[in-house]
């Protein structure tokens, strides 16, 4: 078995895959990568299946590879170093045994995904290796720490490399992650309680700012409050999910993320489409967003495309340049 060892961490790093669907009715949050597109593209570029486990990093990490591996790092513009030499993100990289992979933030984007050929092996719980830290379940049941060693299945790294070396992700997706717009548009359908919020228009017309109170459970936004939320107060809990825009009595929206609880008693104003939740996840505090209302039919269409892309990432082959 090949393996890798955690040498350094600043921030939060956990193992994630696409989550633990199917257990919401028991109160189990889905968990999984906050930016699923980045996770599946990291896997594809490392020759893995889309649902393989990756390392999700808020901050910086350094890993020692204890065997040869193809590695791909994606997400919000990570800076990637192999043995202190900078390499490109969103690209397959061939690393030899003993090399040290360092990933650190560039100041643009927020979360990085590291895929290693073969995928990270750790405890699977209810069909997923995603770590749900609050519930102590999945993989290690806790964030990574220095000294953790993960097994990686034995694979023919030379063969993997021959298949993935010239693969490139869609340039618009990479662009969106490395050069976020000044204000990110979040497409959303109406939510369960849209009809109860008479000033929903405020939410749709105003610009909101991502705050520092944003984590794997939810991203809190700051901007013009919805006065009607105060009047509504507490409602009977409804089943909630990633992308639900909850408005607590203070009127400031919270967009639920992968570790959110499965029911909630705050008004649900909108439901952000999954692809746009991926983009939101990458926005650092201070970044601005706007909501745009879409109808149910176009939402179905967009989600169909998104789910298709998660299962089969769109990769192009690039002509490799040969030197000498």
């Amino acid at each position: 078995m090949g393996s890798l060892r955690v040498e350094y961490i600043a921030g939060l790093a956990t193992v994630q895959d696409l989550g633990r669907d199917g257990y919401r009715a028991l109160g189990v949050p889905v968990s999984g990568a906050l930016d699923k597109l980045s996770a599946v593209y990291a896997n594809a570029l490392a020759g893995n299946k889309p649902r393989s486990a990756v390392i999700e990093v808020f901050g910086a990490i350094s890993l020692k590879l204890l065997s040869d591996a193809v590695v791909a790092v994606t997400g919000g513009y990570p800076r990637v170093f192999v043995d202190n030499v900078e390499v490109k993100s969103w690209m397959p990289v061939l690393c030899s045994r003993g090399s040290v992979l360092k990933v650190s933030p560039s100041g643009i984007g927020r979360i990085h995904y590291i895929a290693v050929s073969g995928g990270v092996v750790c405890e699977e719980v209810l069909g997923s290796r995603s770590t749900y830290v609050r519930g102590g379940m999945g993989c290690l049941g806790r964030p990574l720490k220095v000294g953790d060693v993960f097994e990686v299945p034995p694979i023919d790294v030379g063969y993997v490399w021959s298949r993935v070396a010239d693969l490139r992700p869609p340039s618009d997706l990479v662009e969106k992650h490395v050069k976020p717009e000044s204000s990110t548009l979040l497409r959303a359908t109406e939510g369960v309680h849209s009809h109860l919020l008479e000033d929903l228009g405020t939410l749709l017309k105003s610009e909101y700012v991502v705050t520092a109170e944003s984590d794997r459970m939810g991203y809190r936004l700051d901007g013009p409050p919805l006065a009607s939320a105060r009047k509504l107060g507490r409602l009977p809990s409804v089943p909630t999910d990633r992308g639900y825009v909850q408005v607590p009595p203070d009127g400031k929206p919270i967009v639920l993320m992968s570790d959110a609880q499965t029911t909630g008693g705050y008004a649900v104003a909108l439901h952000v489409l999954p692809r746009d939740v991926d983009y939101l996840a990458q926005l650092s505090p201070g970044r601005r967003v706007r909501f745009e209302l879409v109808d149910a039919g176009s939402a179905d269409e967009e989600v169909s495309k998104y789910l298709g892309e998660l299962e089969r990432p769109v990769l192009q082959r690039e002509e490799l340049e040969y030197w000498g």
Partner: peptide
């Protein structure tokens, strides 16, 4: 309510 392109909410 049809929500988010993959959820139907029944009140």
């Amino acid at each position: 309510v049809r929500s988010g392109g993959y959820v139907i909410h029944v009140d």
